[in-house]
Design a binder for these strands. Structure first.
Length: 584
DNA sequence: GCCGTTTTCGGCCCGACTGTTTTCAGTCG
């Protein structure tokens, strides 16, 4: 599906046009970008079945943009964008990734200091040249420096949820090749880390079948490949257009499990396993588990991961917790937790609709939830402070409640075992008070509260602010507790231990926000919550129907934090959820 | 450049916040 690629191009055009001080056209392009990004159907399919006219039916897309989409689908390029880039040869998307830098400032830096790339910018910042440009100053220069540092630290990592469909597509294509029996993704993607550095693909061929040339030929000549690092019979390595490095390794059946284990990692987990092997007089490597018998090595396991673990005297350890952070000790002692499964959730507790900044109606989101097998959802539109999202005030919130009642009646009449719960995503104000009146919040089934402003308060103030908010007896869940956006913004600085403690005392649930670039709470914080018994929820934070499908990423995150079904409130039936969540 | 009509062109989301200014531009959501 090329929707995201096209959205990115349209957005880039919008930024160039903003730099040129064009009125309105930038807005038209970014609106079209958002709209294409939000589309349920494949834009290529729309074009192929309905032609240009069908593309023009996409909201925000008119004749001119439709033609550019057509051009991209046919040629993989948009001449208009190439032209803009030629006129202003600046890495806009790279530079605007820096928090606080937008097209206007980028334009100014290019004009005054000839800055084109983040490298140029870093040099200028170090030489203290930026502070002298009109409209900039010491503080801005410092913020740019921090932004560059942050990008460098997080840089080069891809957000799993955003690259997953591309990865799956490559996996499928390789699976279909002749002689390939099975293809799996290993590495940090298989451990379900929130970001991945590169991609390890493992392919299985039958023992004795060493004709891997066709598979390797295909791999290094895939359309998305821009550079071939190496091409061999068992391993090839390439770089994709978007910068990601990908390895393909071909394994035989007899060593497939050992290879999968080895390439899944993490490294420390593997090292621990090898130590166990040594203690048992065995040797573990990527080809199998071996016993030395006189002068010969005899393979005693290797075809599957399960048999390798078993031969080491261990139960199977799921990839999500292979981090050498206590899982091996727990496995030895028979204390591995029964972590939550991918089909254990009964509902989703953070969903935005077109009452505020969501795309779809309450009813559409409910239908999507029903099709996913859920029993309930909580509608949590924004509160009034978030004016751009046309956040709800007390009056509209009450109106929304009535609408939810009507839809619930309709769903019941249709015979669905499903309920829409009334909620809100209420802004936490600077001092920790809430954006909506207590009486309005008290009317709702479940209240979520979250931070969308003042991200830079000192840790002590920020912690106090959050604790004050969750101490309000109407607040049931703290949404995306650290407010981080991966590759964009660090989380707020808080004493998370103090917040987790306060959550325990007040009976507040902390959220695991599954949206790919949030993934908030992190695995590490989840584990702390699980250890002391703080309740958790796993929510999609969906602004469109499609976003609800990101929920599996939140489940991965929970699994990485060792959470059991009993720790997750939306894995509970609705009666128990409502009984337990309110702290009266 | 798109949309929605007032069918041929005028209006387009906007408030909070930051850092720069000394009254405001740029960025973010």
């Amino acid at each position: 599906m090329k929707n995201q690629e096209i959205a990115k191009i349209l957005f880039e055009i919008s930024e160039y046009l903003t730099m040129k001080d064009e009125p309105f056209r930038p807005r038209a392009y970014s609106r079209a970008a958002e709209s294409v990004d939000a589309l349920d159907q494949d834009i290529e399919k729309i074009y192929k079945t309905g032609g240009l006219a069908a593309v023009e039916d996409v909201p925000g897309v008119g004749v001119s943009i439709a033609e550019k989409i057509e051009e991209y689908l046919k040629t993989g390029k948009v001449a208009y964008l190439e032209e803009l880039k030629k006129k202003t040869p600046v890495d806009v998307s790279g530079l605007s990734a820096i928090e606080g830098l937008g097209p206007k400032k980028i334009q100014k830096l290019y004009k005054e200091l000839k800055i084109r790339t983040t490298d140029d910018l870093l040099k200028a910042v170090i030489a203290h040249k930026v502070r002298d440009v009109e409209g900039f100053g010491e503080k801005t220069e410092e913020n740019i420096f921090k932004g560059l540092q942050f990008l460098k630290e997080s840089g080069g990592r891809y957000i799993l949820g955003f690259v997953e469909s591309q990865i799956e597509e490559i996996r499928k294509r390789i699976s279909a090749l002749k002689g390939i029996k099975k293809v799996e993704i290993a590495g940090s993607a298989r451990r379900r880390k929130e970001t991945i550095g590169d991609l390890d693909i493992l392919a299985l061929v039958e023992d004795g079948d060493d004709d891997t040339a066709a598979a390797m030929d295909y791999f290094v000549s895939m359309p998305e490949v821009t550079r071939i690092y190496s091409r061999g019979t068992t391993r090839s390595s390439v770089r994709l257009k978007d910068g990601m490095d990908v390895d393909l390794r071909i394994l035989n059946r007899s060593s497939y499990g050992a290879g999968l284990l080895y390439f899944t990692g993490n490294k420390d987990h593997n090292i621990e396993l090898r130590k166990i092997a040594i203690r048992k007089g065995l040797k573990l490597n990527e080809y199998g588990l071996f016993r030395r018998d006189k002068e010969r090595e005899i393979k005693i396991a290797g075809a599957t991961e399960e048999e390798v673990y078993q031969a080491l005297g261990l139960p199977y350890i799921v990839p999500e917790i292979r981090e050498n952070s206590g899982e091996i000790e727990a496995a030895i002692q028979g204390n591995l937790p029964k972590i939550i499964g991918y089909h254990d959730l009964l509902g989703d507790l953070q969903i935005q609709t077109n009452w505020t900044d969501g795309e779809n109606s309450i009813e559409e989101m409910a239908e999507e939830a029903i099709s996913m097998g859920y029993k309930y959802i909580l509608i949590t539109d924004h509160s009034k402070r978030l004016t751009v999202a046309s956040g709800l005030d007390e009056k509209r919130l009450a109106e929304q409640g009535k609408e939810i009642d009507r839809i619930n009646r309709r769903l019941r009449d249709k015979g669905y075992d499903f309920i829409i719960l009334k909620g809100v995503e209420c802004d936490i104000l600077k001092d920790g008070s809430l954006d909506l009146a207590d009486e309005a919040l008290a009317e709702l089934d479940i209240v979520g509260a979250s931070v969308h402003s003042y991200f830079n308060l000192p840790a002590a103030d920020q912690t106090e602010r959050i604790i004050r908010a969750i101490t309000n007896r109407n607040v049931d869940i703290l949404f995306h507790p650290t407010a981080r956006v991966i590759n964009q913004r660090k989380g707020i600085e808080v004493d998370m231990d103090a917040i987790i403690k306060a959550a325990l005392q007040t009976g507040t649930t902390l959220e695991i926000d599954a949206y790919p670039d949030r993934s908030d709470l992190s695995d590490e914080h989840i584990r702390k919550c699980v250890d002391i018994g703080v309740k958790l929820s796993i929510d999609s934070d969906a602004h469109l129907k499609r976003h609800m499908r990101y929920i599996h990423l939140g489940i991965s995150q929970a699994r990485r934090g060792w959470a059991k079904r009993s720790d997750i409130v939306n894995a509970w039936p609705v009666e128990r959820l409502l009984r337990s969540i309110k702290k009266d």
